[in-house]
Design a protein around this nucleic acid. Sequence first.
DNA 1: TAGATTGTTAATCGATTAACAATC
DNA 2: TAGATTGTTAATCGATTAACAATC
Lengths: 212, 212
Amino acid sequence: MARSSNVSMAVIRRLPRYYRFLDELLKNGVVRISSNELSSLLGLTASQIRQDLNCFGGFGQQGYGYLVEQLHDEIGKILGLSEITDAILVGAGNLGRAVANHLDFGKRGFRLSAVFDHSPAIIGKTVKDQQVRSMDELEEFCNKHHPKLAVLCIPKGAAAELVDRLKALDIFAFWNFSHYDIGDDDERVIVENVHLGDSLMTLSYRMKHSES
Amino acid sequence: MARSSNVSMAVIRRLPRYYRFLDELLKNGVVRISSNELSSLLGLTASQIRQDLNCFGGFGQQGYGYLVEQLHDEIGKILGLSEITDAILVGAGNLGRAVANHLDFGKRGFRLSAVFDHSPAIIGKTVKDQQVRSMDELEEFCNKHHPKLAVLCIPKGAAAELVDRLKALDIFAFWNFSHYDIGDDDERVIVENVHLGDSLMTLSYRMKHSES
DNA sequence: TAGATTGTTAATCGATTAACAATC
DNA sequence: TAGATTGTTAATCGATTAACAATC
């Protein structure tokens, strides 16, 4: 596998989509596929798909195409899905619980190893087979289990302080659902901001500017 | 305001973020801001900000900068946030309920006017002041109230069929949380795919390929 | 071998950044 | 007026697409 730093975010963001479609093809018993067939399925150009894949190595066979299962597994490996990493959820309100329940973390390279919340009304309840813990236990838990990702489902106002607290506990990766932008100033930090509000607003823009 | 078609998606996706930061500044009583100050706040270049804003008109004053309140309101107008459009939620499971409760639709250009679900266990319950309706009532409701956006919080398998059903009811805009890609083949359709699984996988990639 | 399709280089396109004249 | 900062044009950079030689 080629060295995978200096692969652009544009490419990285397409990988999960390739993976999903290959998974589907695999389930449907498709053995072989060409970049051209894939391209019409995905709505991309064949050129782009070949270009993207060749960031990581030559997975195809000239004159034949790609083996679906092999390509699927290679992309899974590139995404690091079988290298399971511990994650914690902070904030077990509506959204936090939904994220925990809705997604299969295990299939995506993570294990949800603890859930924390501030509110006495929620602490002790069960979310996805986890007893919700008090925020007071955060330090103890992290020092013992060393999770590497924090899923943040907390109010905007609490985010900045919490990020600092988590950094001190050696957590530098954040899946952030709060309406707060975790700063890019710190080189060590890896953030994926899921700004649902922003997403809805772009939809508003597009609907209200479309000719109809 | 300049004609706003042919504005690139890259620009559109930055607008809500500008809006959020301006909202914050406004709340903090900041009256005036230069593109340069904004740029360091947002982690962009001043050039890009000016370029972006000038897709829609000249909102600044040379030698002075931008008036925070005016710029905030202009971007809100561009995003169409005060032009309220009816939306329905289909799928009131964990995720659907969380989305309904978590987001203030009203501040983002929409009103959640009905919630639908398939499951008898959920129908009749209250979600965000709405009685959850049976899917059987979908046609009647839409023909009467003409909602323009559907928020889809349903399993992957049900998506394709549902999209067709909704199109027949004159709904062509979708905020899609299912792990299914709503096709771009139909020109009339406006989709915002929120693929949380994909988002988590890109995080996996980045964490597992970072030098540490 | 002939046909097909990849891997890869070159050309194009679009988006970002830099520069600067206009102007408040 | 002088200083500051925009609006806008030009230069750069990166990403996508096209083309084609390599090769299965």
